[in-house]
Amino acid sequence: MIPGQVWLSPAQWLPRTAEKTVDALAEGRVTDGEADAMGYEQLPVSSDESAPQMAVRAARRALSLAGTPAESIAATLHAWTYYQGHDFWSPAHYVAAGSGALHSIPTGIQQMCNGAAAALQSAVHHVTADASGAPVLVTTADRFAPPGFDRWGGDYGVWYGDGATAAVVGRATGTDAVPEGSLTLRALQTRAAPELETAHRDVDTFHAAPHTAGPAVDVRRAKKAFLATQGKAEFLGRLRRETSEVLAAALREAGIGPGGQELHSVLLPRLGRATAREVYGPAVAEVTGAPVADLGERTGHLGAGDLLSNLTALSAGASPYRLQRGQYAAVLSAGAGFTWSAVVVHRP
């Protein structure tokens, strides 16, 4: 149970430049079948800014929306999945310094594409345990740039977009009100299956340095070897079961369902049309009849950022998915390892 009235004010920052699917098709970077399975129009691409630089932009936007002074932030939690621009440093400290949260304790969060959920869970623990009620800043950022990563062809069934997300997380206490436009967090549930970590690991050997096995990250090779031993049907079935169970747990925690509140929508990880059809759609249907949506048509998969980007869509004034007062929505998240999370939010 989420204690007290925990609120979050999310934001995102995406590059203005993008690579179009029609151009990727013309260049032979994807096939017609892959484009149809994905169903996405474009991927945002950062031509010059690193992931942490984009995170600073998103953080400043979230702080402004929440009306929260940067110097009041108690902790900065930064999550990512891929290279942050330097080989040996702390991007979380860079984000804290760049966003003005100079009194915060920066921490890096590594849970692959479920990193935003892990950071959000840590933020909830912090704001509910800290008697001062000081807010926490959560950020994510990824840039899937060549030559180290092929955003179109480096993975099966996933296209990767560049961008950053952020959220200020706080707790309304006493006379403190929830900031205008923020969402209240009603549930956050997480499940994990560590035995599936080999889906993203070269099982032949551990390497002494990055890109030892090749000049670019090759997610396909590890997945192909994993599915050869596990079986694709069995693996997809496991993904559906875990998703259903974590969503059901979150809805119970939030009091959603028979005899409880109605659920406006369920937003999915941005993994494309085929994955929504084969995994997430059936998994959600086992638990609720609420409509589902994949909002990745113009963003692709944002690495650790899908969750907060979806929460931004639920809170942003111009978004067609914006919650009206009194409405509830759920957002699903998943990451290699594997880990699954489900968040339920409410517009007060």
Rank of each mutant, 00 (worst) to 15 (best):
V203I: 15
D162W: 01
Q261G: 10
R240T: 06
A225S: 14
A177G: 09
T198Q: 15
G289K: 08
D150P: 05
L268M: 05
A249F: 01
Q230D: 08
A276E: 04
D155I: 00
A225V: 13
L183K: 12
A199L: 13
L263W: 02
F144D: 05
A250C: 04
G148A: 10
L183N: 11
A208D: 14
G237A: 11
P146E: 12
E262D: 15
A209F: 11
V178C: 11
Y156T: 05
A225H: 14
G174D: 08
E278N: 10
R273Q: 13
L227R: 06
A285N: 09
E286S: 12
W159Q: 11
F144C: 09
G257P: 00
T243C: 10
E253T: 14
R143D: 03
T175K: 13
H211Y: 14
G153K: 05
I256S: 06
P147Y: 09
R143W: 01
D162A: 04
A274V: 06
V287A: 13
S182Y: 04
G257K: 01
G214A: 13
Q230V: 07
R273V: 02
R201Y: 11
F206C: 12
A216F: 01
R186N: 13
I256E: 03
Q189K: 15
V178T: 13
E253Y: 03
